[in-house]
């Protein structure tokens, strides 16, 4: 019996082999390669910290890091706030309407990158249809809107982050039970006090998790901003792309170092999130 048991588990392990090969070939080796390259000089030789030094001192790259972080945080915060209200109201609809709204949200989550950038250009570019319409209607401010500025790019980010945030936040609201609200109101708590003392503390761990996912999502994004502004809007992902695929001076080693830095920023945001999670759960469970 023991023999058949162990041979059975061996067969099971065999089934894992394709997955392991896949992970190894497409995840581990490239990452390893990238890390190795980031410590080489520009000719792909030796061991040096030069690339990191360059990455962390050149103002172009420093600004790219700052922009990436700022746009990630801003768009995530905005998407989160919108999603809180939208997701909560979705939970109040009947199942039919709710499913339709979620389907739309699901589709919009995948509406990002180049098509989204073009849609925005048509609506809100220099001769954008929506802006012209608003101007005709006498909205002066519409004329000064610049899609190709930081504000414009941030808006695009908010646009594609919001549906994702809704999809992630909406199930969290189902964690709030109606009886808690009822019990709280019978104990003299207003709606505001219920959310202050019970609702938000209960939701917080889930919301923090969502927030860190949004940050990572924005930090790694590339196509949307690139399609809109080319390489003129200074983001870390765009700089990396320019270094590894740039026609004039490709520099894989510096690109790798920047990619490692980006990965570290992401890991850092995940760690911060994990710490906040622990803090918010400190009382519960």
């Amino acid at each position: 019996m023991a023999r058949t048991g162990s041979s059975k588990s061996k067969i099971m392990l065999m089934a894992l082999v394709p997955l392991l090969i896949w992970v190894f070939a497409f995840e581990i080796i490239p990452v390893f390669q990238m890390v190795v390259m980031s410590f080489q000089n520009s000719d792909g030789l030796g061991f040096t910290l030069d690339q990191y030094y360059k990455g962390l001192t050149t103002s172009l790259y420093l600004e790219a890091m700052k922009n990436s972080i700022v746009i990630s945080i801003n768009s995530s915060v905005a998407a989160m706030i919108i999603a809180l209200f939208v997701a909560y109201s979705i939970t109040r609809f009947t199942t039919g309407i709710r499913d339709q709204l979620l389907m739309v949200s699901n589709m919009m989550t995948n509406f990002a990158g180049v098509p989204l950038a073009f849609a925005y250009m048509i609506l809100m570019g220099n001769n954008g249809a929506l802006l012209l319409l608003l101007e005709r209607m006498g909205v002066e401010a519409a004329g000064s809107f610049d899609l190709y500025s930081q504000t414009g790019v941030t808006q695009l980010y908010i646009y594609y982050q919001t549906p994702l945030a809704i999809l992630l936040v909406y199930p969290i609201f189902y964690g709030i039970r109606t009886e808690w609200k009822e019990a709280a109101s019978l104990l003299g708590a207003s709606t505001w006090k219920f959310w202050r003392y019970i609702g938000i503390p209960v939701l917080l761990p889930g919301l923090l998790g969502t927030f860190s996912l949004l940050i990572a999502n924005a930090l790694g994004a590339y196509a949307t901003a690139y399609a809109l502004t080319g390489i003129s809007f200074n983001l870390l992902t765009i700089r990396i792309a320019a270094l590894v695929s740039g026609d004039i001076f490709p520099n894989f080693q510096l690109g790798s170092a920047l990619a490692v830095i980006l990965a570290i920023i992401m890991i850092f945001s995940l760690v911060v999130n994990e710490l906040m999670l622990r803090w918010s759960r400190r009382r519960g469970t």
């Binding site: 039970r177 009886e179 808690w180 009822e182 019990a183 709280a184 109101s185 019978l186 104990l187 003299g188 708590a189 207003s190 003392y197 019970i198 503390p201 209960v202 009382r283 519960g284 469970t285």
Partner: peptide, 28 residues
């Protein structure tokens, strides 16, 4: 409800999960 001075116990307990025994009882 909050002005009725009525206490209620639910089938599903409905305790606040983020508050401990003391805080739950003290809530009102």
């Amino acid at each position: 409800s909050k002005d009725r001075e009525v206490g209620m116990v639910f089938q599903s307990y409905a305790l606040f999960p983020n508050l401990n025994v003391f805080q739950n009882i003290a809530f009102g």
